[in-house]
Design a protein around this nucleic acid. Sequence first.
DNA 1: CCTTGACATGTTATATCATAACGTATTTTA
DNA 2: TAAAATACGTTATGATATAACATGTCAAGG
Lengths: 160, 160
Amino acid sequence: MTPHTNAFDTHDHSHCADTGLARAEEILATRKLRLTPVRRQTLQILLQEHRALGAYDVLERLAAAGFGKQPPVAYRALEFLVEQGLAHRVRRLNAFAACMHPETDHAPVFLICRGCNALAETPAQPVRAALEAAAQTVGFTVERTNIEALGLCPNCKAAA
Amino acid sequence: MTPHTNAFDTHDHSHCADTGLARAEEILATRKLRLTPVRRQTLQILLQEHRALGAYDVLERLAAAGFGKQPPVAYRALEFLVEQGLAHRVRRLNAFAACMHPETDHAPVFLICRGCNALAETPAQPVRAALEAAAQTVGFTVERTNIEALGLCPNCKAAA
DNA sequence: CCTTGACATGTTATATCATAACGTATTTTA
DNA sequence: TAAAATACGTTATGATATAACATGTCAAGG
């Protein structure tokens, strides 16, 4: 799978990884959960790449960093991060991305550009609220959501 | 994969397949597209099962009905139906379901019960509208959406 | 401290989902 | 009716994901 860039506007995100890891430490501490080496490395990989990566892409990087070489190593770490809201699974891409808004927002919306494969995560409480409302009319309780949109980012629209 | 029932309230849907197929014929006629035998059978399978089926489950039924036995046969028919809005892909389940509201609604929301695997498709223009609004703030144009929620259906809530 | 239970990591093996590439047949249209 | 487009079927392979089990590490209670 071709990797996907993340965010429509390029920006310096050298600090993303640092702050992201620090934030993760805090969050997990309050939950008495551990950010073990593999988990930490996995999150760092996602933060540094700053785009959606397939599990096997992550695995490759983990292996290169001296961790295990078999799929479950990556899948387990990713699953943990997703459960804790520190990363998200982008189902349309069969890929994972670090959460860009771990505290603000647990109703992430992913915008996927079909032109350049860029991926943006945007907070969207209104979307979540509308979803909850729709669910309520049939008595359904929402626990987790996957909200993804495929379309065209501003850059690709301009180019077309 | 264990199959998933569809709709939280059981109901007689013997006519779903008939009306669904008729509706599909109409829709495709206006688009000058063909509901070929495999496509028709595929749609019928989804309508009759009335739940999400994996591509290989569909393939099995197609093969039993005398069509091809290889994955692309199923994937192609399903892809066509999804493109035409006659079926949807439920990514969380790696499965496909016939569209329950082909004319009303091209912003389907799927509610997936983690208790009983029931699947409900509910129209949700407000959700779509909220998504469009969120996208617009970053200049993104939405073309297709996948909106899925995992949670508990009324029955399973009652049971718990 | 040190044992014990819970959790975490790694492995092998396999299951599941999906598509590429190609040849043939059918349908449409010029 | 020939040419072009579309559809169907195949073989083969690729990509994604999980089950099951062995070993190691941590944290808490005795």
